[in-house]
Design a protein around this nucleic acid. Sequence first.
DNA 1: GTGAAAGCGCTAACAG
DNA 2: CTGTTAGCGCTTTCAC
Lengths: 380, 380
Amino acid sequence: MPPKRSLPANGGSTEPPVNAVSERVTIQDVAKAAGVSNSSVSNYMNGRLHRLGPETRTRIADAISGLGFRPNQAARQLKTGKTHGIALVVPSIVNPFNGQLVFAIEQAAVRAGYGVHLCNTMRDAKVEKGFLENLVGIGVTDLITIAPLNTRRGYYAGQNDLSVVAIDAIRSDLRLPKVDTINLDHESAIALAVEHLFALGHRRIAYVTDPLITYSRVMRLSGFRKAMEEHDLSADLIVLLDEAHGARDIADAEMVDVGRNAAPEVLKLEVRPTAVIAFNDMIALGLMASFRQAGMSVPGDISIVGIDDVWVSQLSYPGLTTVRQPIEAMGAAAVERITNPSAVLAGAGTDTLFLPELIIRQSCGKPPRPSGRVGKPPEA
Amino acid sequence: MPPKRSLPANGGSTEPPVNAVSERVTIQDVAKAAGVSNSSVSNYMNGRLHRLGPETRTRIADAISGLGFRPNQAARQLKTGKTHGIALVVPSIVNPFNGQLVFAIEQAAVRAGYGVHLCNTMRDAKVEKGFLENLVGIGVTDLITIAPLNTRRGYYAGQNDLSVVAIDAIRSDLRLPKVDTINLDHESAIALAVEHLFALGHRRIAYVTDPLITYSRVMRLSGFRKAMEEHDLSADLIVLLDEAHGARDIADAEMVDVGRNAAPEVLKLEVRPTAVIAFNDMIALGLMASFRQAGMSVPGDISIVGIDDVWVSQLSYPGLTTVRQPIEAMGAAAVERITNPSAVLAGAGTDTLFLPELIIRQSCGKPPRPSGRVGKPPEA
DNA sequence: GTGAAAGCGCTAACAG
DNA sequence: CTGTTAGCGCTTTCAC
C-alpha cells in the first residue's frame, strides 16, 4: 500500500505544506497543523467563533490559509443535507430578457454565497420535468424558475421540500407548499403603452402577441383589453400568433422572426392600425424591420412600442419606445426570497409585483393624417 | 418523536410507496425492497449490468421506479471524487455571442449527463479568480472558460487536477497540465470580410476593435493587417477603442454603445473609409445605428461587416453582412473534450480551430462614387 | 472552550 | 453472480 504519511518521514526538510502535487487538504490536516481538533476547525468554518479562544482562532486561521484549505462541499452537503446552490430553470438564456434576468440572478446569488445551476428548458415540458427530477439528486432544494410550463400539469407538485421562486407565474399554479412569485405588473405596463399612444393621438391601436402559454402573455393581453376599454377604444385589433409562428425551436431567438412574420398580419387587419404594441421588444423589433423593409416609415406611417426594454432595443434605428421591466431588481428579489426567507410568512409564500416604467425613444409619433397613406417624414 | 414507519403500521391499505411526505429514499431502501444487497443496486445504477442476474435486474429496476429512487449525488461525489458538473466561466451571458455559446454548451452538457455551474465574471479578474477557488470546494474538476483573463497572471496555474477547455484562448497561456482549446480561425474570418469588400470595389477599409484583452481581439486585428497587405492595401485605418470606451460595466451589453461611440472616430480618420469591419456584430450594429442617425446611408455611403453572426444581427435594417462562427458546433466540441477526452493525447491537450463562413446580407454595397459625399440611394 | 465519536448515502474492494 | 464492509470529509451532539 502507498505511504500514508502519518509521520514526517522525509528527511526532516523545511517544506511543511508541500505545494507540489495537490493532495486534497482536509479539515483534519488543518486541525493537525493548528494543533486543535477538527470540530474546532469546523466551528471556525461555520462562524461559531464564540466557541473558540482568541488564540485558537488565529492558529486555525493561519493553518487554513497556510494549507490553502477549501472545505469539501460534497461532504458538507452529505452531512447537512443543504446545498449552496440554486437551480435556475429558464426557457432559454438566448432570449435577451431571460439572459439579463439570469445574469442578474447569478450576480445576486454569488453575492449571497450561492452558486447557480443553469437549466435551459427550450420551453419543452419534458426537458423541464427532467431537470426537476435531477434536482433532488443533486441535492438542490432552491429553485428559481422563469415562465414555468409544468404548472397545471402538476410536475412541480410532488416535488415537496423544494422551495421555488417563480418569475412570471402565479402561485396557485405551482401546487407546492413553498412558493414565492415575482412578477411585473403586466396590466399597468400595457396601460402605460396605451396611454402614451393615446396621448399622441392614436385611436386605432393593435396588439401583437405570441401564443398565450405564459402568465405574462395572458396578463398583457387582458391588460390591453382593459386599457383600451378605459379609453373607449375598440380592442379588436389583436394579432394572436399561433403555435406555428411560435418561438420554440431555436431558443427564442427566432422571436424576431415572429415579429417579422406578424407584420403582414397587422397590415391585413380589417382596420389599419396607426400604432402597434408588441408583447415584447423582440417582436417589436421584428415588426419594425419588416415594416421598414416594406417601405413604411416608423413612426411616420406607424408607431411601435415594445415591452421589456432589453438591451437589444437600444440598437434599433429609430430607437424603440418601450416599457421597462426592472430586471435587475427582479433578479435580486428572487434571490433574496431564497437567501432570506420571510420568517413571518414562512410557508405561506409571497407575491411581489414590480412596477413598469415607460421609456420614450423614437418609434412613436403622431398618427399619419387620416386620408393619404403616407404621413409626415420619419425624421423627428 | 414522529412515527418512523418501519413497519406498514397503517391498516394494511394498498399504498406501498407512500407518495406523501418525501422521506429521502436511499439505496438501502431499494435494496431492501428488491431483496438484494446495496452493492447490487449500486452496480445496477452504474451500468455494471453484466454482474447481475436478469431476474435481479428487473427486481431492482422495479424497486427503483416504485420508490422513485434518486441517487444522492453528494454521497456519490464524496466517495468517488468525481462530479457530473461542468463549471462554465464566461464574461457575461448578456453578450449574445456568449449567450448563444453558453446555451449550446448547456444543451450539449445535459445531453451528456452533466450539469452546468454558471459563473459570469464581468471580465473582472478578481471575480474570475474567486470562482476558480470555489470550484475545488464544489468538487468541480472540469471547466469550460470563454475568453479567460487570468491567464498570464497565473491564477489558473496551481489549479492542477483541473482540466479546462478554453474557448478564445491559447493553450500556453493557461499554465495547466490539462488544457484543450477551441477557437475560430480568426485570421481567416477577417480575410473573408476583406475579400468580400475588396471584390465589391472597396479599397479604403477601416477596422474597429475593442481593447486587445482577449485572444480573438488580438488575432482579428493581426488578421486584418495580413489580409489588407495581401491585397496591397494600407491597414492604417484602425480604430482601437481604449479602456474608457471598453465594455466592462454592464455585462457587455453596452458594446453597442461602444459601436455608437466609435462612429465619430471612424469619420474622423484622416482618410475617409468606404467600408468598415467591426470586431463583432454588436459593434457593427452600433456603428450602423450611429451612421444612420447621422444621416448617412448604409451601404450607400458606407459598407459595414460584422463578425459572429449572432442572432441579433438579423434584426437590423439593412441586414448585417457578417462572418459566422459555428457557435453550436464549438459548444458541442467543448463539451466533448470533457465527456470524451482523447485517450491518445491524454495530458497533451488539443487545439481545435473552426472555420468561419461569410454571411451576405444587405449592409455592404459598392463604394460610393469617389467624388461627392452622397452615393447612390440606400434602396437595393 | 475543546475533543471524541457517530454517521450522512454511496462505492469499491473483497469474500463468499 | 451476490453480500459484507470500510470509509470519502464533514458536522454535530455530548462528554470532558
